[in-house]
Design a binder for these strands. Structure first.
Length: 151
DNA sequence: GCCAACGTTGGC
DNA sequence: GCCAACGTTGGC
């Protein structure tokens, strides 16, 4: 299995934006409740680079960069009955959901919109752009990562 | 294990 | 707000 070192994570800016991350310096990337996305979160290693994407935004697009500060640990929100993210099927002994800690690196001077990504031929294979990709955590090749930063 | 019903995501 | 594309749930 190839070692993946670049990722893209989605967040809704009205829930947690790149500016929130810049203010907090780092955060537990909690709240992911999709198994495939979870598996990617668990695969993240310290030092991996992460593109931050704003979904449900106007316009949607990539807005910044982070780096993995700590590998995934159990997502505490799954144990909290008062949290909307509470999962009654999870237990301390058998946690279902995990989150890494992601540190702010930079906010892009100019966001790269979804439209611009689609317009870039070199990014045609980016998972984000493939049909109906709703996955909130996506592996990105180094080539694509660099291409996006150059946009 | 199948699949219909339902819920969610996220662009538009 | 609409709706296509998925994911999940639960009856059988």
């Amino acid at each position: 299995m190839p070692s993946v070192e670049h990722w893209l994570v989605k967040t809704e800016p009205n829930v947690y934006s790149i500016d929130d991350l810049a203010r907090d310096r780092s955060t537990d990337w909690s709240g992911v409740r999709n198994y495939q996305a979870r598996n990617f979160l668990k695969a993240m290693a310290v030092g991996d680079q992460v593109l931050i994407y704003h979904s449900n935004a106007e316009p949607p697009g990539i807005v910044g960069v982070g780096v993995v500060l700590k590998e995934a640990t159990p997502d505490r929100t799954q144990f909290d009955p008062k949290s909307e993210l509470f999962d009654p099927k999870a237990s301390q002994a058998a946690p279902r959901w995990f989150c890494p800690e992601i540190k702010f690196v930079q906010k892009l001077k100019k966001q790269v919109s979804l439209g611009e990504l689609r317009g870039c031929k070199a990014l045609a294979e980016l998972v984000l752009l493939q049909r109906g990709s709703r996955l909130s955590v996506i592996p990105v090749s180094e080539k694509h990562f660099q291409t996006i930063l150059e946009l």
